[in-house]
Simulated scan of single mutants.
Amino acid sequence: MSLIVEEAADRVVWRLDRPEVRNAIDRELVAALHEACAAVEEEPRVVLLTGEGPAFAAGADIAQLRERRRDDALRGINSKIFDRIHRLPMPTIALIDGYALGGGAELAYACDFRIGTPSARIGNPETDLGIIAAAGAAWRLAELVGEPLAKEILLAGRVLTADEARAVHLLNDVVEPADLLAAGHRLADRIAARAPLATRLTKAVFHAPRGAHPFVDDVAQAILFETEEKRTRMTAFLERRRERNS
């Protein structure tokens, strides 16, 4: 089993479980991630994604990657699963301890949040192997950290330390290894405390193409205006304010 799935009512933890190869992403793991995505697409929950052992994910499985040819690249084996993770209905949180390189970094970039430990190292060394970062980094990384730094990572092989990644907001937080999973759950608690449908639609609107605005914003709001949860939460807010002012 290359992926351990731990389910709860409002969240699910995915553990990459190939510690003997630093959780390198192979076809079996990709298949397991597709299956896990299908489950949270059917029953939307927050996803916490972490790696077993001394690394988050030290890239794609190079032994498999070396044998892939043109048609394999055109199938987008890794890019499709990372895009699917990026599009999951509820927020996703990558928990990074140790290396997140190559495909491992691209998996982290696909998530909505990233929390690391002091030993986190994030980068894309693909050009050193004669290929490009073709599973999202070549365009997603600039959106996350800006063009100059993204080019330094992609074209010159710079690997960010945890403090550097935190300084450019690629990591939302840096915590000690013993607190990493708990930090992820604390963030998941904050997300889960909010209205689930409002959270889902906010994420969808956030990632909608620029030309779709403001129409998609208005449609999402129209849906939410008709929900009982909106009325219940607003009524509770007004009652709390009245009590404070009485």
Rank of each mutant, 00 (worst) to 15 (best):
R69F: 10
R69L: 11
R70C: 04
D71K: 10
D71V: 06
D71Q: 13
D71N: 08
D72T: 10
A73E: 10
A73F: 14
A73H: 05
L74H: 06
R75K: 12
R75F: 02
R75N: 04
R75T: 08
G76L: 04
G76T: 02
I77S: 00
I77W: 00
N78L: 06
S79G: 02
S79H: 04
S79R: 13
S79E: 07
S79W: 03
S79P: 00
K80V: 06
K80S: 15
K80T: 13
K80C: 06
K80D: 11
K80L: 14
I81G: 00
I81P: 00
F82C: 05
D83A: 14
R84Y: 00
R84P: 00
R84N: 01
R84Q: 07
I85D: 00
I85F: 03
H86Y: 01
H86I: 00
R87F: 03
R87G: 03
R87H: 11
L88M: 04
L88V: 03
L88Q: 04
L88G: 02
P89Q: 11
P89T: 04
P89A: 07
P89H: 07
P89N: 10
P89D: 09
M90Y: 02
P91S: 10
P91T: 07
P91V: 03
T92H: 11
T92Q: 12
T92C: 14
I93L: 09
I93Q: 10
I93A: 09
I93C: 08
I93F: 07
A94V: 14
A94D: 15
A94R: 12
L95S: 11
L95Y: 07
L95I: 10
L95C: 12
I96R: 03
I96W: 02
I96Y: 01
I96G: 06
D97V: 07
D97I: 05
D97P: 07
G98N: 14
G98E: 12
G98K: 13
Y99E: 15
Y99Q: 14
Y99C: 05
Y99I: 01
Y99H: 14
A100D: 13
A100G: 14
A100N: 13
A100C: 13
A100K: 09
A100Y: 10
